[in-house]
């Protein structure tokens, strides 16, 4: 005992609800970064040198170890922190001392930083120190870059070639 008019009314109401839901499936649009901006992403994974060099144990120290665990060298596992700096357009936008990962502090250091920047031409320079030296950097790269709107410029470190790459 269904009234066709009523059924039609029910259909219209359901349809209207579903249309509203469907509309929200891709509207209103969202813009993550402001118009005319680009993103510079500094990201890499790299392990700095060990905190200390391997050291020969003295005979007395070796004798103290349990017989099944005796060894001649002691190599500390812990790594140093990586020192990293990034300049965009002559301004240092990032300077950090990145600790090693892992519970024992023996894993690589990681960086993943995003910089939203107005499109345009910039000198971009990146520097990194992974050795025990106190000053200066072990790796550097600087480039004159033209950042197009919505460009994603990735600054990565290639551990095989031991160099920074811009892409």
């Amino acid at each position: 005992m269904t009234n066709p008019l009523r059924t039609a009314g029910q259909f219209v109401v359901i349809l209207a609800l579903f249309m509203a839901v469907a509309a929200f499936s891709n509207w209103p649009v969202y813009r993550q970064n402001p118009q005319g901006s680009a993103v510079v992403m500094l990201t890499f994974v790299h392990g700095a040198d060990r905190q200390a060099e391997c050291r020969r144990l003295t005979p007395a120290e070796i004798a103290k170890l349990p017989p099944n665990m005796r060894r001649v060298q002691e190599c500390p596992r812990g790594r140093r922190s990586l020192e990293v700096e990034l300049d965009i357009g002559g301004k240092t936008v990032y300077r950090a001392s990145l600790p090693p990962s892992g519970i024992a502090g023996d894993g690589p250091s990681k960086v993943y930083e995003r910089f939203v920047w107005p499109a345009g031409e910039y000198d971009i320079a990146v520097r990194m120190r992974d050795s025990p030296r106190r000053e200066g950097f072990d790796y550097m790269r600087s480039e004159h870059v033209k950042l197009a709107p919505d460009q994603l410029l990735v600054i990565d470190f290639n551990p095989q070639g031991r160099e920074f790459v811009f892409r």
Binding site: L15, F18, M19, A22, A23, F24, S25, N26, W27, P28, V29, Y30, R31, Q32, N33, A38, V39, D150, Q151, L152, R167
Partner: peptide, 26 residues
């Protein structure tokens, strides 16, 4: 609804670009 507003993709990924205006599923 599917005929009225077919679900479509929003363009091929360009890894060298960040998302511009995206129709988000809210």
């Amino acid at each position: 609804v599917s005929l009225w507003k077919p679900a479509v993709s929003q363009g091929h990924v360009d890894m060298a670009k960040v998302s511009t205006e995206l129709g988000l599923d809210w």
